[in-house]
């Protein structure tokens, strides 16, 4: 019996030997996890390869860090656990830096930032109701934000809003609109499908991504209301890292600083988004 066990274990090890070796002290290869379903930040092409702004940016950063990049696709709801399990060394998946996430992982300096917006069906009466008479609401400025949030809660009373699971938008709903029905989706695309078919009354997400979702069915849905920033909407998107890899964090911080300074981030951003998303 013992022989069988050791034979099995040996077989199992041989199966994984190829994948072994990684995780050496000196960084030669950095494996980067990304969702691949969040355009324009990241997406998957028809052959299953990861593409998008963050993939191009990561390739640039890796060149600066003198390491080679490997990309790993990972569904959003498991993206932090998989980092902790060591399935990859860094997350670049439009992940906003928040205190809640800082409890479990580290972040690099931000490389992008974006407001969150609502979208509704073009012919929905909600379109008017959500027009709250403000372009931009900074949630840190409580005096100004409070009356707008109250109006928002009133307008969405009895309605349902689709968001992606465990995102800052879900946190926003929990914190500011806890009386509104929230439906959580594994992928933002699916929230778009359900808004399109009328299963939810609105969706809430990162601005560029919501716009990308709307583009798939032109004219059907529109972005409405103010751009939300600050507070739970956070401090911009950064690279997520394990807490025990401070050296890698330093490398990313340096590379991101350079890429912001020499305009690479701006260039890639204009190419993928049509405007500049680099943090101010």
């Amino acid at each position: 019996m013992k022989k069988i066990v050791s034979a099995l274990a040996l077989g199992a090890m041989m199966a994984v030997a190829a994948a072994g070796a990684a995780g050496a002290k000196e960084w030669k290869t950095v494996r980067i996890g990304s969702e691949g379903a969040y355009p324009p930040w990241n997406a998957t092409d028809t052959s299953g390869k990861l593409i998008g702004f963050e993939i191009d940016l990561a390739n640039d950063l890796c060149k600066r860090m003198k390491v080679s990049c490997e990309f790993v696709a990972q569904d959003w709801d498991g993206i932090i656990p998989a980092l902790q399990q060591g399935k990859y060394d860094a997350i670049m998946s439009a992940m906003t830096i928040t205190d809640e996430r800082r409890k479990v992982i580290d972040f690099s300096a931000p490389y992008g930032t974006e407001p969150s917006v609502f979208a509704v069906l073009t012919d929905s009466p909600l379109g008017k109701a959500l027009n709250l008479g403000a372009d931009r609401i900074d949630l840190n400025d409580q005096a100004k934000a409070k009356p707008v949030l109250d109006k928002l809660a009133e307008a969405l009373k009895g309605k349902s809003v689709g968001v992606q699971v465990s995102t800052i938008q879900a946190d926003f709903m929990d914190k500011h609109l806890s009386k509104v029905t929230m439906r959580t989706y594994d992928k933002i695309d699916n929230a778009g499908i359900d808004l399109n078919s009328g299963r939810v009354d609105a969706m809430f997400g990162d601005r560029s991504v919501v716009e990308a979702v709307l583009k798939a069915t032109p004219g059907k849905m529109v972005v409405v209301g103010p751009n939300f920033i600050g507070g739970v909407i956070g401090e911009g998107m950064g690279v997520g890292l394990r807490k025990d890899t401070a050296d890698l964090k330093a490398m990313f911080d340096k590379a991101i600083g350079e890429a912001l300074k020499d305009g690479t981030v701006k260039k890639l951003s204009t190419q993928h988004f049509g405007y500049d998303i680099s943090p101010k």
């Binding site: 709801d77 498991g78 932090i80 656990p81 902790q84 479990v104 699971v165 465990s166 439906r183 959580t184």
Partner: peptide, 20 residues
């Protein structure tokens, strides 16, 4: 499909606590 039955709640809580 967004239903919060036992597995749905488990997944939601994992998203908050990361204790898979």
């Amino acid at each position: 499909i967004t239903l919060m039955e036992v597995t749905g709640i488990a997944r939601r809580m994992i998203a908050q606590t990361f204790a898979v």
